[in-house]
Design a protein around this nucleic acid. Sequence first.
DNA 1: CGTGTAAGGAATTCTGACACG
DNA 2: CGTGTAAGGAATTCTGACACG
Lengths: 108, 108
Amino acid sequence: MTDNYKSKKVISIGVVKELTGLSERQIRYNEQRKLIFPERTANGTRKYSFSDVETLVEIAEKREEGVQSFEIRKEMLKDKKSKEGDSQMRRKMIRGQLNAHFRSNDRS
Amino acid sequence: MTDNYKSKKVISIGVVKELTGLSERQIRYNEQRKLIFPERTANGTRKYSFSDVETLVEIAEKREEGVQSFEIRKEMLKDKKSKEGDSQMRRKMIRGQLNAHFRSNDRS
DNA sequence: CGTGTAAGGAATTCTGACACG
DNA sequence: CGTGTAAGGAATTCTGACACG
């Protein structure tokens, strides 16, 4: 009836920090790398959506596997296209390989 | 999969103010009257859910019609029982009567 | 590359109270 | 009853930078 709660930007960085377990520095860094796009209030405070929070968690998981921002951004675009809630599956496939750099094209 | 976005308490009073158009004073007053129940962060900052925001708007509409907190609280309990998204309908019925006080039992 | 930190400022939020009605 | 406001304090958030690697 009204809006899409999941994509509405209303969460401040402090809450995002608690929700994701990431540091403010890490959260802001992802914005700098163009991986998330929080809005700003009149005075400049960042506001995130639940969607952003989910994305941040996914990014953190990939980064732990050694994937760089550069690659993560590409994967996110691909995910957006195949419209599947699949990053979960790919993550499991990657786990065990020890380093994601060996995958340059995982269409195999 | 994860949580219920609509009921998750993550919005600060400043954002609620913008979302509802109410003053901070009015928002806090509704808590004092036991009409909404925000959570608190470690340091005491209030956090509201989208649900709270919706409730606040409904409360504001009723109050404009002259309904007192006392009555509003009763109506909210009743609404919770009849599980219908009906406050919308009742509101329209009331509109035109000019004063809600004449209704003590609208089961007619 | 990704992240920690100290630095200084600006804006937010909180409570209790006085006020009007 | 419902809401405005000034008051003073405490915690948040922001940016640019230095650091390590």
